[in-house]
Design a protein around this nucleic acid. Structure first.
Lengths: 346, 346
DNA sequence: CTGAAAGCGCTTACAG
DNA sequence: CTGAAAGCGCTTACAG
């Protein structure tokens, strides 16, 4: 490495003082157009970029933001990409940290990050305990997504559980009268929100609920929920809290000899890529995870700038209707349900 | 914020010179046990942590490593977690960057990162063009995983295509004589490796290949590959390059009225979580992605330290046999295949 | 409009 | 074994 150029090198080449270079680059001083041009040309020629460590030391700002993620996040790369692009546009660098364990342990790890003094702000894409504050003891702002506890003023876009209501409405319109919810882990605000929305929707519409099963984001939870059902449960519509659970529900139905969607309609959440290629393909709720990442980061930048959080009026969630949902067949028999191209039964 | 403690504060409290604090903390000078203890106690009391920016400025080292990831990486959080833990243990901080577009564009983004002067080394979890070097023009070491082009001396653990051979052998032992491979994107060394291994295995064993279809990591590729088959293709064993493609193959089979695994056996790769809950559940190749992340990072640290790359003798891949593979049924009929608990056919 | 100077918090020869 | 001093590359009052 041929020694990276410094502002002193640029100053020498441009024939000005080193401080002038600094003023030009930060845009702070009042520098004449021609001097500025000369400095810029010299910087260009030397391939000069300011040493961030030195700048950081002087400004007492790190310019770095942390993102904490839990392991069981679906499609994290999309979220990170969205967040990173906003951070970069705002002049920040972004670092990713995994947090593990219980919400309490995760919280401790987040606080540890805040204490390190290396970050100006933190975005959490994992559930942590509410502290009742929007910032850490060090005064570092924290922005949480949907899955954060709502007491933390979750960004909440993907936590929006209104698709549950739309799902129930459509299924009821198709003729469904009996429902089951298989919930996700109660650590997640999103799981609690979906459950709440499910219960409210059934209540308001006077539909029959076989209850709420599950409680973790696993395929096994879906299988077990179906195993526990009475033989005369179908025709039934199952609202699963995510696609993995929904796939488990479909497997559970197969085990019991119930057809999907004839005997059991199933909906998921997350729009896993494989969902479109299952037989039957899976009805699901798709969220724009990249946009979620962007929004969370925009909120953090707003907090950092002391501005009001930006409003995000457009909902991020969209229902994708596929083959796993259809009108219930009136009696359980061997006919394939109408209006679907479900898997052939040999 | 009550002004973070500096080494000067610690020195004052311990009643020593500031440089003594520095010597104690870096472990470089020769400091008496009692002075060291006094300094440590003072540091503890003040909650002192060295200012990394200042240290970096002095040492001319950033202590930061970059990881670049492509979007279509399966389970990136596991890989990142593994890499991050090794980086931290080595005293480095790790930043994640997404890279997009063609291999050429990705390469350009990686080189840009190297040029920024912010990183001491780079791990690539995405395919980029080979440069014929193990380091960038700036002399920054780059370590690539399996999916990197092999000319870059890929870490190669997960690229290990030997499971393909084992898959073919087992299927042949079950009675399969006719095979099809649905390949992934040729940008990926892993895809090319699997295809090569497939062709070699069939050749050596004198088995019939219906060719190599696909060419991208999508479910659609799997569906199309089956659509293009002749009516008398089954009984057939399909080696799909990953689980998403495999699910497409299963859907394609359903479309054509072929049962899985009776008419068509299917194998995937990646061990998607949903695979175990499909009906039939999907035979796949599971790789320890966290360990892959660790190994890649260990290689980078070795390169940074000027040491020989560590040997990783243990293979990372393991075949998970599930219901989607079974002996072919001799003639296509309605009997469910033996020895599996595939989905009931109503 | 421009330059000389101080200082951010650290590490590391160097002298005692 | 310990301390005084220089200096990493930058920003920013301050004086001209």
């Amino acid at each position: 490495m041929p020694h990276r150029a410094t502002s002193r090198d640029v100053a020498r080449l441009a024939g000005v003082a080193q401080s002038t270079v600094s003023y030009v680059l930060t845009g702070k001083g009042s520098i004449s157009a021609e001097t500025r041009a000369r400095v810029l040309r010299a910087a260009e020629e030397l391939g000069y970029t300011p040493d961030l460590a030195a700048r950081s030391m002087r400004t007492r700002r790190t310019g770095r933001l942390a993102v904490v993620m839990g392991i069981p996040t679906s499609d994290p790369v999309e979220m990170l990409t969205g967040a990173a692009s906003v951070a970069r546009a705002g002049g920040y660098t972004m670092e990713v940290h995994g947090v593990d364990g219980s919400p309490a342990e995760r919280t401790e790890q987040l606080l540890e990050l805040a204490r390190s003094g290396q970050y100006e702000g933190i975005v959490a894409f994992a559930p942590v305990h509410p502290t009742g504050e929007l910032s850490t003891p060090e005064g570092i702002p924290v922005v949480a997504t949907a899955d954060f506890d709502e007491e933390m003023h979750a960004a909440g876009d993907l936590a929006d559980a209104s698709p549950v209501t739309a799902l129930v409405d459509r299924l009821a319109a198709l003729g469904h009268r009996r429902f089951l919810h298989v919930a996700g882990s109660a650590d997640y605000a999103s799981a609690r929100g979906r459950e709440r929305a499910y219960l409210a929707a059934l209540e308001q519409r006077g539909l029959e609920s076989l209850g709420v099963a599950g409680g973790e984001w696993t395929g096994e939870a879906g299988v077990e929920a179906v195993r526990a059902l009475a033989d005369d449960a179908p025709p039934l519509a199952v609202i699963a809290a995510n696609d993995l659970i929904a796939v488990g529900v479909m497997r559970g139905a197969a085990e019991r000899g119930w057809s999907v969607p004839g005997d059991v309609s199933v909906t998921g959440w997350d729009d896993y890529e494989v969902g479109a290629y299952l037989s039957p393909s899976l009805t699901t709720v798709a969220g724009d995870r990249r946009e979620l990442g962007r929004r969370a980061m925009r909120r953090l930048l707003a907090a950092l700038a002391g501005e009001a959080p930006p409003l995000d009026p457009t909902p991020l969630n969209r229902i994708v209707w596929r083959e796993s949902t259809a009108a219930p067949v009136s009696t359980r028999d061997d006919r394939a349900p109408d209006g679907t191209s479900g898997p052939p039964r040999s």
